[in-house]
Nucleic acid binder design. Sequence first.
DNA 1: CGCTCGCCGTTTTTT
DNA 2: ACGGCGAGCG
Length: 750
Amino acid sequence: MPDSNEMLEELNPEQRRAVTAGDGPLLVLAGAGSGKTRVLTTRIAHLIRERGVPPRRILAFTFTNKAAREMRSRVERLLGGVAADCWLGTFHATGVRILRREAARLGWDRDFAIYDTDDTEALLRELLGSRTLPRHLSPAEARQRLSAWKNERVTPERARALAGDPIERVVADLFADYEQALRRNNAFDFDDLIARPVDLFEAEPEALRPYSERFLHVLVDEFQDTNAIQMVFIEQLSGHHGNLLVVGDDDQSIYGWRGARIRNILEFEKRFPATNVVRLEENYRSTAPILEAANQLIAHNRGRMGKNLWTARQGGERIRAAMSADEEEEALRVARLAQEWVEKGGSRNDIAVLYRTNAQSRALEDALRRHNIPYQIVGGTRFYERREVRDVLAYLKVVQNPADSVALLRTLNVPRRGIGDTTVGRLQAAAAARGWSLSEAVEHCQEIEDMGRPAARRLAEFARFLAQLRGLAAGATCAGVVQAVIETTDYLAYLRQTDEATFETRRENVEELVSAARAFAEESDDASLRAFLEEIALLTDIDGMRQDIEVVTLMTLHSAKGLEFPVIAITGIEEGLLPHASSLQSQVDVEEERRLFYVGLTRARDHLYLFTASNRRRYGDYEPMMQSRFLAELPESCLEAETVRAPSWRSYAEGDPDTYWRQQGQGAQVPRRGVRDEDGTRESAATYEDDFSQEHVALAVGMRVRHEKYGVGRVERLEGHGDMMKVTVHFERHDAKKFVARYAKLLPVR
DNA sequence: CGCTCGCCGTTTTTT
DNA sequence: ACGGCGAGCG
């Protein structure tokens, strides 16, 4: 363990100033790679050791559990075991911790459930089912709207007044019902985990006092991503002693779509006039070219606090940029680069491949798999979102919290036990009419008049089954209950019977759930089912990331925030993807996309690779893509373009899209030739071209052609030239279809 | 009640 | 390309 002086000597003067600052509000503007985690952990250690603050009187917020764990272990390295007493966790985990203590005060039972996005949407589906809607309203849309309101502290009454269009009015009407339903189900949604404590603290100041008096110091990481309600939460908890340290970087604010308010950081000094400000601008992570590129890029944003990162590091190679014809070739290049890195003695752990949307991972996965390069995906379809896993979890939830109608509905007929929609409808109607919960309706099924004999018998059997399961669960650990559910429902037999083809994978997932429960029961000091369910509910994507295995990591740019790798590859740097199409309507949103790219660039320590493709599959069809405007914003001196001359970006920057397009088309053809594997077999991109290229098939209007899937048809229309040529074919057995000619796999028919 | 087929929306990011 | 879901049939 280092002594205090050693601890401080390792810091630069600005970092030291932040660590040793006195009481009161403190704003640390910490650029990427400037050592903010070190500042936070050393500050906590300093408070405890030098200032005599008891660990239990320190509260620190992070955005992910992973960040919390890392912070805890680093404080422990500085101080030893006392760090365990700090309150250190995500906003949501801290909210839960408070809710467990205060649930009764709010009218919830201590065994409350936490609803994730899927649960919430299932509940909304239940509620929407009984309403007539003006137009199509999806549960997802309703959830987003409600979530936005809750995060802005808008009440159901206020929502009614605010609602503009008819859809919004329907959702506003639904709001109060939804809140009641959560209460009936003894559940909180994600937003509630913060909103309910905040509301409670506001309504009953004496409920807040034990907390605000307890926490002598409150610290917040990633402050630029806090939203309105989190800001209130922070103010409530730090209000009594006023010792609030926030660390953030306005240039890395990427959660505006989730209600994050960048003005929390921009206006912090206005809100707390006595604020001490520390700026950390020395970067300890990246090479000079990477940093220079990042600086130039972000300079295009307005409304920044402004800072210039610098590094003492000398040298460093240029950023490499490569353009591919399509996403397959792009993925192939990524696989190659990983392979070469490993051949040169590098570790796969050094490499992260980043993208804007989860859907982009597919082509990358295929290429990595073909090259036998092990990889892990952070996020995407998460383990706990898989159908088979959720089925088992639903049983666990019902056992834990009988009031949970969402979980109960899921279990009623899985595995099939002859309880169909009609029966469920009658149950719901009876529950509504008599003020029962759904599980009470199941238990009283004999008393429901219009319930048929066979249905009532099956329901009674199901109720007995649940009771038996609860009895079994009473003395067991979470692992025991998981095991019991799988065995007593004969769930694996059900899986095999529903879909033979996917059975193996699904069985493995179920078994992984068993292992997860076992591991939790062994490692956690509370092995209860409740603790396990809570852990799962609060897990984040990034928490599942492993560093103990030798793999390349694939993830979204959002997930990459806060991480660093020696080698970073960013793929799909194209208009419509980055910046994403949904952001193009507003300047503000494009700036957030630029920050997202900035976050990506600044993850790299030594090597940075940028990839674009001129065609990309979207919704199954190839679409031509343009290089991102952001590429043109990087200084040429930092770049080395492999397949395309930098001037094509320049021409785009100068607003000459036609030139740009022509160059793109040409650039894209060059690298496709001679793309081969080590053993000489051709990669799919090349094979594809040789077998199906339209270069040798001179398409003409009126020509008869055959398509692999759609059969025979007639060419109706040709648009564009070369790579970009599109062909419309009217098929005999289908409607007209439009293809990028190059990829259409059309063969002439005589 | 359960199964199959075809249509529809989906891909923005996540606690 | 793919999964979810409603309609229609056995």
